[in-house]
Simulated assay, not measured.
Amino acid sequence: MLIAIHPKDPQPRLIKQVADCLRSGGIIVYPTDTIYGLGCDIFQTKAIERIAWIKQVDPKKAQFSFVCANLSHLSDFAKQISNTTFRTMKEYLPGPYTFILGASKQVPKILHSKKDTVGIRVPDNKITRMLIEELGHPILSTTLPGELVEEYTDPEMIYNKYQNLVDIVVDGGIGGMIPSTVIDATGDTMVLVRQGAGEWEE
């Protein structure tokens, strides 16, 4: 199903429809402040397995992020972080950044890797943030499989390609082509892992 949601003024009824789909184990493609993402409810194990199957990866080795509406969920899913790390995240988020942190015990078992880390993302996108608020907890998110190509910026083209694999494609307008900037914040100093849409100076 392709659902068009207004990017500046998302319709609550449609947001609720997508959140209900996630709650019942559905998989969605949805807009962020960078590229379109593939997402599901972090507590729906079968949905996580489906995403891993679409991407042909082992859930424990996959680079999934938790997409949050704000930093209030941080202490639930990340181990205790320093004040400096928190201040930095507060300064850069919402925005096109993913911060890698130590995973807490509340991160679902299926996602615990050897590294035991979790990527935290707060996109500057109204649809995404309203969706997470309606759901009540973060969305598990990853990039669409394969190379980042232009057709991944157009929700209608994404729908044509993935309509048989996902439950809903949210059309929130044309997306970007550059993914988020990834920062490893597990150590004493923050390390740039991937330069993406967000500016970062060490």
Rank of each mutant, 00 (worst) to 15 (best):
V122P: 01
R13P: 00
N70E: 05
I132R: 00
R50I: 00
L131C: 09
S65K: 09
F66H: 13
P96V: 04
A185W: 01
V193M: 11
Q44H: 14
Q80L: 09
R194E: 09
V118A: 05
P96D: 13
G25P: 12
F77I: 12
N83F: 00
T98I: 15
T186F: 07
C40W: 13
D171S: 09
K55T: 11
I5S: 07
S65I: 11
A185Q: 03
G26M: 08
D33M: 04
H137D: 00
I42E: 03
E150H: 09
F99V: 12
Y152R: 01
L144D: 05
G196E: 02
V118Q: 04
G25T: 02
M1H: 10
T85M: 02
P138I: 08
D33W: 04
I27A: 15
E199W: 09
K161L: 14
D184K: 01
E199K: 08
V149W: 07
I120G: 01
S75Q: 07
A47C: 05
G39L: 10
G25H: 05
E151L: 04
D184S: 09
L101F: 08
D188S: 09
A78L: 12
I127T: 10
V166Q: 03
A103Q: 09
L93M: 14
V166W: 05
V122C: 14
Y152K: 14
R23H: 07
T189I: 11
E202A: 14
D188A: 11
T128Y: 02
I3E: 06
D167N: 14
P96N: 08
A69Y: 02
F86A: 14
L111I: 07
S72A: 12
M157E: 15
V67A: 10
P12L: 07
D167G: 08
G37P: 04
D171M: 15
L144A: 09
G146E: 10
G25C: 10
T84L: 06
Q17E: 15
Q44Y: 04
S104I: 03
T143W: 06
T143Q: 07
A103V: 04
G25V: 12
Q80Y: 10
V166F: 05
F86C: 11
L71F: 03
R87D: 15
D20M: 04
P31D: 04
I3K: 09
V149R: 14
Q44A: 14
R194A: 06
P123L: 06
D9V: 07
S180A: 14
D116K: 13
Y36H: 12
Y36C: 02
P179I: 12
T189K: 03
H73T: 15
D20A: 07
R23F: 04
Y159A: 11
M130G: 06
I42P: 06
D184W: 03
Q195N: 07
I127E: 13
D124V: 02
P145F: 05
V149N: 12
S180K: 04
R87G: 12
S82Q: 11
I158T: 01
K60I: 00
P179Y: 08
N83T: 10
E147L: 10
D33Q: 06
I5F: 02
I54M: 11
H112L: 14
Y162E: 01
V29P: 02
F64H: 07
L93I: 12
T128P: 04
K90P: 01
